[in-house]
Structures are given as C-alpha cells and as structure tokens.
Design a protein around this nucleic acid. Structure first.
Ligand code: DCP
Ligand code: MG
Ligand code: MG
Length: 345
DNA sequence: TCTGGGGTCCTAGGACCC
DNA sequence: TCTGGGGTCCTAGGACCC
C-alpha cells in the first residue's frame, strides 16, 4: 500500500492508431482520419492525424483540403466511430482488470486512482497491458489530482510516463503559457493577457479580486486553483449517464428550400429518436440548430409540454415546431437536432 | 483551406410568483 | 402605490474539450 495516486491514461493518435491496427501496412506512414476520407471535398475536417502526418503540420480540426495541401502523400481515411467505440471499450476493460478505480473520460482517456507505493510501476504495467491486449499505445500521467495527472500525460506523449505533482508543478509549469492549462481556451487566454497574465505563475499569483472582477466569482476562484496545480481527486467509477444526444449534418451544398430544410430536420429527429428509444432513455427537450452560410448559428429549444417522451413521432413533431422559430430566408449549411434526456430513469 | 461532429457546464435575462 | 427584493423556471448563448 501507499498514498493515493491519480493517473491519467490517454491513447496516442487514437483514431489513427485504430485505423493502423486494421491496416498494419499503414504503420509509419502519415495517416489522416476525417469526414468521408476524400481530401478533395470541402466542408470536412481532420479528426486526428498520425504523428507522421503531424510532422507536416496537420492537426485535428483542420480542413481536410488544407491537410491534403500540407501532406498530399498521406493516407486519408473516413471516420468510423463504431470501430473507435469498440476499441475504446477494450482499453477501458483492460484498465478495469487492475485493482484500481477507473473513471472513463471520453473516447480515449481515463483517470485511474490507486493506493500504491510505486505509481511508476503501476503506470508501466497499465501501459504494457493496454498495448498487449489492444495493440494501442498510450501515455500515462502520474499526478496528485486530475489537473496534474492530465497535464502530466501530455508531457508523457508519445507512449511515455511523466510525473507532475505539487513538488514539481511550478518548476515545470510556471513559465508556460496559462492557455496550456486544461479549461483555459483561446478566449480566456486572451482575457488573461489583457490583465497582463501570461504564464501559469502569473495566474497563480494573480490578485484574486482582480480575477473575480473580470471573470466572476466562480471562474475567478477556479482559475487560481487551476494555476496552482490543485484540482479534483475524486474518481467516479459509475458509468456516465449522458445528459443529451445530438445529430447534426453539414451539407455539401447549402439548403435554400424550406421543404428541404424541414425534411432534413425530420430525418435527424427520427434518427435521434430511434437511438434514444434503443437506449431506453426519455426525452425532455428538443433543440434545433441552424448554421447559415454566414456561420451565424442560432439554436432554439423547447421543453416538451406533456413531459418526457420515448415517442419518435413526438420528437419529430417537436423538432419541426422548433424549426418554425427560425427565419429561414438565408442559405443553410448545417442542421442539427439535440435532445436533452431525463436524468431520473 | 474557409471553418466536422459529439458532447458538457456555466451564465444571464425575462417571466412569473411570493 | 410608481416601488422593493428574492426564488425558480425557462431559453439563448458562450466557452471549452475530445
Ligand atoms: N478536435 C478533435 C479532437 C479529437 N477528436 C477525436 C479524434 C482523436 O483521435 C480522439 C482523441 O483526441 P486526443 O486529443 O486525445 O488526440 P489523439 O488521441 O488523436 O492524439 P494524442 O496522441 O495527442 O492524444 O478524439 C476529434 O474528433 N476532434
Ligand atoms: Mg489521445
Ligand atoms: Mg484524449
């Protein structure tokens, strides 16, 4: 036994690695996964790129055509979520086969809590087991809370182990940009810069009142905690219950016809409805999202008046009623439907 | 090179009630 | 009467992450 440690496991180049598993001849080549895999078509982006492709500057979220320009010799593959889901489940099962607490956090990562004397030995064993059982490589961060463990895994990439705790937090992170912290994105980073706060150390020693004035009481306090390398230590092992489910489509060409738009929403609503019924969940709200060609993207939502439903027809009808709230006099590039789910069943 | 799809959580303002 | 707070529900949007 020993103290409690918090580890973060994050798979390397996850969806690209899963593709390489089923096509071993791709190993060592630049691989780009995204959209339908055709890098000449617009309105598609990179889900992930193998490290070989990243060497050419290809990144998640980049338009597929931009990736093609940067790396025409890459192998472009369509995204195949069910296969990634299955691979993810094998990884999580492997982690859970150890005498540890496991909190799944998305497709390709998990927090692991364990009371051990030697967290490095545990991390090495976990890494080895995941590789042996699934063929997938991962990095593991060793920390004293979720903040440190998560960032440690980043330093471990690819395929390594790194330890970040209160002992080395400031030495390692102090001079790095505050935007590298998990939860600080571009907008928050820009606001911090306006306050003259550039590094993690700047933020960690910032005036609490100034932060609260700029960010509000909650976020202001949280930013300080984050920059000091503090964070949650609780591992929730219970399976995650989804709060919502959504389906959206960017069309290859804009829709302009009202009937066509309504038909698109109906299709999405029915697909979603079928999945919900399959999952045995009840729907409380139905939301519709419309992205116009300008990229203006309003959302409208309706709480179901007659209470939670499992009726696909009710969901579809609600989506079409919500669609009425939009002025559809401009070209539409994306339609989406989201359902919020009852949390008490 | 114009900008995917699937999620979560937080905030703010108006309605409505006391 | 010309003036209050507070609480809760509801919707819209922002921000972030994988
Ligand atoms: N904008 C993004 C980011 C990620 N993903 C998907 C594809 C990734 O493979 C997976 C995991 O995300 P990570 O951030 O963990 O990235 P990778 O696992 O691909 O690479 P890394 O080795 O850096 O973790 O999530 C996505 O579809 N779109
Ligand atoms: Mg990963
Ligand atoms: Mg990840």
């Amino acid at each position: 036994m020993g103290p409690w440690w918090l580890l973060h496991v994050d798979l390397d180049q996850f969806v690209a690695a899963v593709e390489v598993l089923r096509r071993p001849e791709l190993r060592g080549r630049p691989v780009v996964v995204g959209g339908d895999g055709d890098p000449t078509r617009a309105r598609q982006v990179v889900a992930t790129a193998s490290y070989e492709a990243r060497a050419f500057g290809v990144r998640s979220g980049m338009p597929l055509r931009a990736a093609f320009r940067r790396c025409p010799e890459a192998v472009f593959l369509p995204s195949d979520p069910p296969v990634y889901e299955a691979a993810s489940a094998r990884v999580m099962a492997t982690l859970r086969s150890f005498p540890v607490r496991v909190e799944v956090w998305g497709w390709d990562e998990a927090f692991v809590g364990a009371e051990v004397a030697d967290p490095w030995a545990l991390a090495a064993d976990l890494r080895r087991a995941v590789l042996d059982k699934t063929g997938l490589s991962c990095a593991i961060g060793i920390g004293d809370n979720k903040t440190t463990a998560k960032i440690a895994a980043r330093f471990g990439k690819p395929g390594g182990i790194y330890e970040l705790t209160a002992g080395n937090w400031m030495a390692v992170m102090g001079e790095r940009p505050a935007g590298e912290l998990w939860g600080i994105g571009p907008k928050t980073a820009a606001k911090l810069t306006e306050l003259g706060l550039h590094t993690v150390a700047d933020l960690a020693t910032a005036d609490a009142d100034a932060l609260r004035a700029r960010f509000g009481p909650r976020q202001g306090a949280w930013l300080l905690v984050l920059a000091r390398g503090l964070g949650d230590t609780e591992i929730v092992t219970e399976p995650w219950i989804a709060r919502s489910r959504s389906r959206e489509t960017t069309y290859p060409r804009d829709l302009t016809d009202r009937e066509e738009i309504a038909a698109g929403v109906a299709v999405l609503a029915r697909e979603l409805g079928a999945e919900i019924v399959g999952a045995g969940r009840r729907v409380t709200h139905v939301a519709v999202k419309v992205r116009f060609a300008s990229f203006y993207t309003p959302t409208r939502v309706m709480k179901l008046r007659d209470g939670p439903t499992t009726d696909v027809a009710v969901i579809e009808r609600a989506a079409l009623i919500v669609l009425e709230k939009f002025r559809l006099d401009r070209p539409v590039r994306l339609l989406g439907v989201r359902v919020d789910l009852a949390m008490d069943d």
